[in-house]
């Protein structure tokens, strides 16, 4: 696929904020099962806005978009407590979430990612391990596991969705912990 400047901006600037965005949506929106849909809608809105002009500051823009969407949805909902709307409007979102680690996946994130892969269903986990950790191409994964290439492809399709969802929970580490106690805390 040909990548545009907007694609790159979206992947490098917006997606690393997903853990923070998901956390924000969870705190502000009671219906947990609606969060993936809200998130995709927010992504669609920021992407479309960026095709006109890429915003200078991604984080405030993303969270402003999120907040506006939540207010829209809350107002449209049949029953909504006044409290919810006030709470949404009250919050200066841009300051409440930490910056993500830039271009780096910290040790803690790697650990959480490993944990996420551990939770995959057995066959899917094995395909993912061979493909991503051991770096085997799909064809070799199939041969090694004695399953068909199309089965491997199906497992990849399943694994990528589960991994993407797991990453939505991998929040950036606060700097102090990352540099100092993080290692010790990670082992037990």
């Amino acid at each position: 696929m040909n990548r545009s400047a907007v694609d790159l901006w979206f992947m490098e600037e917006v997606l690393p904020l997903e853990a923070a965005l998901t956390g924000y949506l969870r705190r502000k929106w009671r219906e947990a099962n609606e969060i993936p849909d809200l998130r995709q809608e927010i992504y669609t809105r920021v992407y479309e806005a960026a095709t006109v002009a890429i915003p200078e500051l991604t984080k405030p823009f993303l969270f402003m978009t999120a907040r506006n969407l939540l207010i829209d949805r809350a107002r449209r909902a049949q029953v909504v407590s006044i409290e919810t709307v006030i709470d949404l409007e009250d919050l200066d979102v841009a300051d409440t979430v930490p910056d993500p680690e830039r271009n780096a996946v910290g040790r803690e994130a790697v650990r959480l990612l490993q944990a996420a892969i551990n939770r995959l269903p057995p066959r899917c986990r094995e395909v993912t391990l061979l493909r991503k950790v051991h770096g085997l191409p799909q064809r070799d994964v199939a041969r090694r596991m004695g399953i068909s290439e199309s089965t491997v492809e199906q497992q990849v399709a399943k694994g990528v969705r589960l991994i993407a969802d797991a990453m939505a929970d991998i929040a950036p580490e606060p700097i102090a912990r990352r540099l100092g106690r993080a290692r010790k805390a990670g082992r037990s």
Binding site: D7, L15, E48, A109, V110, L113, K132, M167
Partner: peptide, 26 residues
């Protein structure tokens, strides 16, 4: 498929980014 809607595009980009990020395991 990508051109059908922005939603298709952002959904694909999100999965692709996650899949690439898993390369950090190596």
């Amino acid at each position: 498929w990508l051109a059908t809607s922005t939603r298709h595009r952002v959904t694909y980009l999100r999965l692709e980014a996650a899949w690439r990020r898993a390369d950090h395991l190596r």
